[in-house]
Amino acid sequence: MKILIVEDEIELLKEIEVFLSKEGYICEVSKNFNEASEKLHMYHYDVAVIDITLPDGSGLSLIQWLKQKNIDTGILIISAKNSLDDKLYGLDLGADDYITKPFYLAELNARVKAIARRRMFKGSVEIIHNEIRINPENKSVSINDNALSLTKKEYELLFFFVANKKRLLTKESIAEHLWGDNIDLADNYDFIYTHINNLRKKILNAGGTDYLHTVYGMGYKYLEE
């Protein structure tokens, strides 16, 4: 799976590239509009992660061009402007999703994955990891073919973990993923702890393995074994 990352901040670009490469994607990078435009003309990408504000043009024009040419590339917009207009305009142009700086890499990863899955399998495929099967279409989970009853947030939590296997998920990124960035949880991260414990218990009770590992002081990791 090929991904093009368009971002003018080289340091950020590097981190995104490293992070997504570890997920097994083939990543190519462009640090300005012209470079990106050139690459999009020459090659085909499954997903393009595009920063809107570039030194020599707007990322929105790239999206426009892709859509005009009917090129089937999934698009994730990155913007420093948390501006609603940009967001609506970008989504109107045909972008699949939108993420605002500063974002968590795990969140970016989860979004890219969701776009890729929607593009490649039209969202119909189940995600299977050992005994756990997740059906993103009807948001259901089963363990050893027994349906697991999860609350909406528990489902989202598990999904976030599975999308970021072997990655450290900080409490902060989990909180923002589950409840958005409007709520200021600050010192209330014990919420997350309780939440993860509940999920853990449900999986164990259904006969599943506990893949959720606590990383000292920082957060959690979904380990495959």
Binding site: E9, E11, L12, E15, I16, V18, F19, A80, N82, T100, K101, P102, F103, Y104, L105, A106, R167, L168, T170, M218
Partner: peptide
């Protein structure tokens, strides 16, 4: 926003 995004990504990488 951008410098913050860089710092955050670097810290996450460091922790990884």
């Amino acid at each position: 926003q951008t410098p913050l995004a860089i710092i955050r990504s670097k810290i996450e990488a460091l922790l990884e």
